[in-house]
């Protein structure tokens, strides 16, 4: 199975541990890009290398897969989109993303749709869920524009900065996809 694909002007590919450290660090060192998870931004580049190794190990055990999204021409990293805690029995997984501010909604919709299609059609998953900190308005608005459904929240689910945080729940199911257009 090929886990790498191209959509529009973007390459969506699995990371390469000894190549992507610098770009990943640049992406994840901005607090506003990881605040919704919630997680602290990276502060030293060694954290990116550690994260890359962790991603590789989790992929080997088929517990998670993280894709880096980069411009097809300029090779600039614009997002990391991952699925984790994959439950192959229940056919569900949790989606996580970190996105640069300059990525527009149309491009994001294209990329997310391709990732969703891959998860549903290639991996046989049925339910994609995103959990994010309650009050992450910009991210929640993005999810709603992408067709994710708000399902409620999980109270005091994680601890962040010494505070118990509620997580909002959004989901997108294989059955939420529009019927594919009939080709002539």
């Amino acid at each position: 199975m090929n886990w790498n694909f191209t959509v529009g002007h973007f390459n969506v590919r699995l990371p390469v541990s000894d190549q992507d450290g610098e770009a990943l660090f640049a992406l994840l060192s901005e607090q506003r890009r990881v605040d919704h998870i919630p997680r602290l931004a990276m502060t030293v580049s060694a954290q990116a290398l550690d994260e890359l190794r962790r991603m590789a190990m989790r992929f080997e055990t088929r517990e998670a897969a993280f894709w880096l999204v980069e411009g097809a021409y300029d090779q600039q990293l614009v997002a990391r989109i991952g699925i984790q805690k994959i439950n192959w029995l229940q056919r569900g997984t949790q989606v996580q993303w970190e996105i640069v501010d300059t990525l527009d909604d149309d491009s994001l919709a294209l990329i997310v749709a391709a990732v969703c299609d891959f998860c549903f059609d290639q991996l046989g998953l049925y339910r994609l869920e995103m959990r994010l900190r309650v009050g992450s308005d910009a991210q929640e608005a993005r999810l709603q524009r992408l067709g994710f459904h708000y399902e409620g929240f999980l109270p005091a689910h994680v601890e962040y900065n010494d505070e118990a945080m509620d997580l909002a729940l959004y989901s997108f199911l294989a059955s939420d996809r529009l019927e594919p257009a009939q080709s002539n």
Partner: peptide, 14 residues
């Protein structure tokens, strides 16, 4: 009750 997770429990092949 805090959330309803759609289709989160598999009860058959599909």
């Amino acid at each position: 009750q805090t959330a309803i997770q759609r289709g989160a429990w598999r009860i058959g092949e599909s």
